[in-house]
Each structure stands twice: as structure tokens, then as C-alpha cells.
């Protein structure tokens, strides 16, 4: 279970306190939400430094705009919506700078020899994800890695459910084409 799926009452309490400027609650939110935001940013941008900057920007925006958060929405959809927009901005900056989209493989930490095969599979998944257009990449990351529900993805992206489903199906199809059905892990 992801961290952001746990203890919704605790979270809403901390959000309310943090919005009033409570330092402990703000730190609690940062510790809870920075890891998923960083993971999402890294998978969107495929570059550790850009992901670091995007995650930091996202979390500062979250903290500075808590008073604008609509409590009728899931907090996760609000946070990932901000993260997604920040990544899009970062992507645009890279294009203006003339940087080519990076296909750098994400470093998942030390790799013991017995996990080489597993690591190679992970590399291929990340390479294939990095090849997808952002509109397809973001829905797959939200669903498969951050475990948002379909309805939550629609809310985060401010799109109708049908559009989200179409994007997910097309993204899966493109990924199958890129990843190669024969190479899928058993």
C-alpha cells in the first residue's frame, strides 16, 4: 500500500493545520508527499536533477497554496495535478534549452548480482516509458506506479473518464509496441 493511501483522517487534520501555518503539520505533509512526487517527476522527466527540481517546486507550491485546496477532492489528485503541471513546465524549459528528451535509465540504487535480470527488465520498462509522449506516460505512471484510481486520474488531469480510458488504452498499446510482447516478463 502506498503511503498516500493510508490514514485519510490523519491527513485531513494535518492539511487543515498546515494551511493555518502549523510547522509540524507542514513538515508532516512534506515527509509524506515528497517521495511520491519525486518518483512521479523522475518517471515523467527521466532525469534525476530535473526531477529533483520539479519535486521541490511542486512541494513548495503545495505548501504555499493549501488554502486553495478543495477538500471535496482527494488530496492525492490535487498534489499529482500540481506535480504534473510542474513537470510539463520543466519539459517545456528543456525544449527551449534545446535539450533532447533524455532516455537516461533511472538509477534504482545498488543492484546485487542476483537481481541483474530483474534490473534489466526494469531498464527496459523505463526506456519504453521515456519513449512515450507525456500525455500517455503520465496516465500509466499515475495508475501503475502511484496506484491512483481511474476516477482519481480523471480528477487530477481534469479530464472526462472516457478520455482517460482512451489514453490508458492507447498508452498500453504503444508500450506493448515499444517494449515488445515477446520480452514481457512472465
Amino acid at each position: 500500500m502506498r503511503l498516500h493511501e493510508a490514514q485519510p483522517q490523519d491527513e485531513s487534520t494535518h492539511i487543515a493545520l498546515a494551511a493555518d501555518g502549523d510547522g509540524t503539520a507542514r513538515e508532516w505533509l512534506v515527509r509524506r508527499w515528497t517521495p511520491p512526487v519525486y518518483r512521479f517527476s523522475l518517471r515523467m522527466l527521466s532525469n534525476e536533477q530535473d526531477a529533483y527540481d520539479a519535486a521541490q517546486d511542486t512541494m513548495v507550491k503545495v505548501l504555499n497554496n493549501l488554502h486553495r485546496y478543495d477538500r471535496n477532492r482527494a488530496f492525492s489528485t490535487w498534489v499529482f495535478g500540481i506535480a504534473r503541471n510542474t513537470c510539463i513546465d520543466e519539459h517545456r524549459k528543456r525544449r527551449r534549452r534545446g535539450d533532447m528528451p533524455s532516455t537516461e535509465v533511472v538509477d534504482t540504487g545498488p543492484t546485487p548480482l542476483q537481481e541483474v535480470a530483474r534490473h534489466l527488465r526494469a531498464e527496459r520498462v523505463h526506456e519504453a516509458l521515456a519513449e512515450l509522449p507525456p500525455m500517455y506516460r503520465e496516465v500509466l505512471i499515475m495508475y501503475h506506479f502511484e496506484h491512483l484510481k481511474y476516477a482519481e486520474i480523471a480528477e487530477a488531469l481534469e479530464l472526462p473518464m472516457g478520455t482517460v480510458m482512451n489514453r490508458i488504452f492507447r498508452a498500453r498499446q504503444k508500450l506493448r509496441d515499444l517494449y515488445g510482447t515477446n520480452d514481457l516478463p512472465a
Binding site: 518518483r39 529533483y52 530483474r118 506506479f145
Partner: peptide, 15 residues
């Protein structure tokens, strides 16, 4: 199979 491929990927380490 794609879901299984995603599930086999470790989370990146957060700095």
C-alpha cells in the same frame, strides 16, 4: 502482462 512488468520495477531511491 504489462501490469506485471510495472509491478516488477523497483521504486527509485529518493535523494
Amino acid at each position: 502482462p504489462l501490469s506485471q512488468a510495472f509491478a516488477s520495477v523497483d521504486d527509485p531511491v529518493v535523494p
